[in-house]
């Protein structure tokens, strides 16, 4: 394997969990809901995915279970914020805290077990091609799912009637309600989708990235995903670019260190964040661009007047 190939492969693994978690949150925020519970849903996905994979011996069942765990956590959030109209920021934070605590409890008997790893795709012939073989046809399946999800979300939001309804609900829930759209139901569905992809991101950590269960193994990735959604100005294509930029800058920082260039490691560690802030500044200087896609009802609770 050449060095470049190795770099790209490492970048893909580092970026995929961010992309998975962020693409769901993008849909949630497009529907006008701010869910700060990504970290909690992710870590629950990680622990349930790992646990089920260990018990059943099937990594795929683990992935499925991780999606369900993410959805379950997100439905709790949806019930609190949509049905009971609780504050979304406070509820989201409590979902994160609940997830971190509960996952530690569930996972305590799985600590210290080497895990199952989801295999790499292997298409005879194609995966062995020089240069592109392993990069294009030899990734783990979740990488393809993350890309398919990104394309799917972009298509649905932009080109379909469902996407139009989601955006309408997020822009102005009163108008959407007056037009007869079921605001709360749409938001429930979007929140559940966000939970599912966060669960997948968790499964990526415990079944692909580092196949084991360790408490708190998400280590703040949910928050980075949240920042990426804002960074992308709620556009899926930019979100994917942002996730790969973040992962890429991070891995290149490690490379620079390994090459002994003598750049302070603290500076290199902060580079992904610096890059994100710079990109945000560039985006926000273009007023039109930053305002046009921002869901106007973001974070506001909706109580139908009758």
């Amino acid at each position: 394997m050449s060095a470049y190939e190795a770099i790209i492969l490492t970048v893909i693994t580092a970026s995929t969990p961010l992309l998975l978690a962020a693409i769901g949150e993008l849909v949630v925020e497009r529907s006008g809901v701010l869910n700060l519970g990504i970290e909690g849903m992710m870590v629950m996905g990680a622990v349930s995915g790992f646990a089920i994979a260990q018990v059943t011996g099937s990594a795929w069942l683990g992935v499925l279970m991780a999606m369900f765990a993410g959805i379950a956590m997100s439905l709790l959030f949806a019930f609190m914020t949509q049905t009971l109209v609780a504050n979304q920021v406070a509820t989201g934070l409590s979902i994160t805290l609940l997830g971190l605590g509960l996952s530690g409890l569930i996972g305590s008997s799985f600590v210290g077990m080497p895990g199952l790893k989801l295999g790499y795709l292997n298409i005879p012939g194609l995966s062995d091609l020089p240069v592109v073989g392993k990069l294009v046809f030899g990734q783990d399946p979740l990488v393809y799912i993350s890309i398919a999800l990104t394309i799917g979300v972009a298509y649905v939001l932009k080109r379909t009637r469902i996407g139009l309804i989601i955006r309408a609900v997020g822009q102005n829930h009163d108008s959407a309600h007056a037009l007869g759209y079921p605001v709360i139901k749409v938001r429930y569905a979007c929140i559940a989708f966000g939970g599912m992809t966060s669960g997948l991101a968790g499964a990526y950590l415990s079944l692909v990235y580092t196949p084991q269960w360790i408490e708190n193994m998400t280590a703040g990735r949910g928050w980075i995903a949240l920042a990426l959604v804002v960074f992308s100005t709620w556009l899926p294509g930019r979100l994917a670019a942002g996730a790969y930029l973040f992962g890429g800058v991070w891995i290149l920082g490690l490379y620079a260190q390994g090459m002994g260039l003598g750049i302070p490691s603290q500076l290199l560690s902060s580079l992904p964040y610096v890059a994100t802030i710079l990109a945000l500044i560039v985006i926000s200087t273009n007023r039109r661009l930053s305002v046009i896609n921002t869901p106007a009802s973001l974070g506001q609770g909706f109580v139908p007047d009758r």
């Binding site: 950590l205 990235y209 580092t210 084991q212 360790i214 280590a219 891995i251 490690l254 390994g258 490691s265």
Partner: peptide, 19 residues
């Protein structure tokens, strides 16, 4: 030597090892 500037971040530690 690669510094990850963290005591505990399995993902970063794995990345550093691959690099």
């Amino acid at each position: 030597v690669v510094w990850v500037n963290s005591w505990f971040d399995p993902g970063k530690e794995a990345d550093a090892a691959k690099v």
